[in-house]
């Protein structure tokens, strides 16, 4: 009975996860060529060795910056949401507003805001020629900003929910034991919010690490983050490019899973984790 209830979902998720990773691995090792004889080789990994390495570094940097910024801004927003009254409600409303906006739309909006013809240089009266290359520039500012904008709202939502339901009574207890606002924040609120922040950080890191459309729209043509590299190889017409794209996918997956493992280890070390 239980198995019957769980199996439809399990079949779909299992097919996509195990099939996706497995078939990527099989293709990347040359075992499933479009034409010709299958033969085990690491050619697909070595063909774009340098780009793969640079892409990994770039993707890690983008994901790390976005995750750290999102957690800081999101945690601040969550504290403001739960501690302030009217101000809290306003911040809660505007952050909730950004949650259902697709990332691609967010990317388009960020482009209209901070490109050299965007609204911010216009408001500041800076001519487009003197405005730094935030979109498509060397520092990937627009990409990180878009991720941080969307994901900080996500952190705020998750952490504020935890603070409001689980932490409010502890906050009162701590106050009655003589802890002022700042000390309550340090000794009670932030420690109790830590598991929620870690979980959000894992989700954000993995998402921003493997996401294509924002980096493609707001980034520059070279160097390419891993998903953009994989996409280009996948769409390319040469016969060897499919296994090469699969190789990029395998590397991306391996790093994502490693990050999840590290994150879960951090989570288990927090005293709240059962």
């Amino acid at each position: 009975m239980s198995l019957a209830l769980v199996s439809p979902a399990l079949l779909v998720a299992g097919f996509v996860v195990i099939g996706g990773i497995g078939m990527s691995l099989v293709q990347s090792l040359g075992l499933l060529p479009l034409v010709g004889v299958p033969s085990l080789s690491l050619d697909a990994y070595l063909a774009n060795g340098e780009e793969l390495l640079i892409g990994t570094g770039l993707s890690l940097a983008i994901a790390t910056a976005s995750t750290v910024l999102s957690c800081i801004i999101g945690l601040t927003a969550a504290v403001v949401i739960t501690q302030g009254r009217r101000t809290g409600r306003i911040v809660a409303a505007v952050s909730a507003l950004t949650i259902p906006i697709p990332h691609l739309i967010g990317a388009a909006a960020i482009g209209l805001l901070i490109s050299d013809a965007g609204i911010i240089p216009r408001m500041l009266g800076i001519p487009g020629t003197e405005w730094p290359d935030l979109v498509g520039g060397p520092w990937w500012v627009a990409v990180v900003l878009e991720y941080t904008w969307k994901e900080s709202a996500f952190v705020a939502l998750v952490v504020a929910a935890v603070l409001a339901t689980r932490v409010a009574r502890y906050d009162e207890t701590a106050a009655l034991l003589g802890a002022g606002r700042a000390r309550r924040l340090r000794h009670v609120v932030i420690p109790l919010a830590r598991p929620a922040v870690i979980v959000s950080a894992i989700i954000i890191f993995v998402y921003t690490f493997g996401s294509y459309e924002v980096a493609w729209l707001l980034g520059r043509p070279y160097p390419e983050p891993l998903p953009v590299l994989a996409f280009r190889l996948f769409d390319s017409i040469t016969l060897t490019s499919r296994p090469e794209a699969a190789a990029v996918a395998v590397v991306t997956t391996a790093i994502s899973l490693a990050v999840v493992a590290i994150g879960m280890a951090c989570l288990r070390r927090t005293p709240l984790w059962k």
Binding site: R169, T173, L176, V188, L192, L272
Partner: peptide, 12 residues
């Protein structure tokens, strides 16, 4: 100092 019905010991 207050003791509530739930002990509310800090879980961390």
């Amino acid at each position: 100092a207050m003791v509530f019905q739930r002990p509310l010991l800090f879980p961390h």
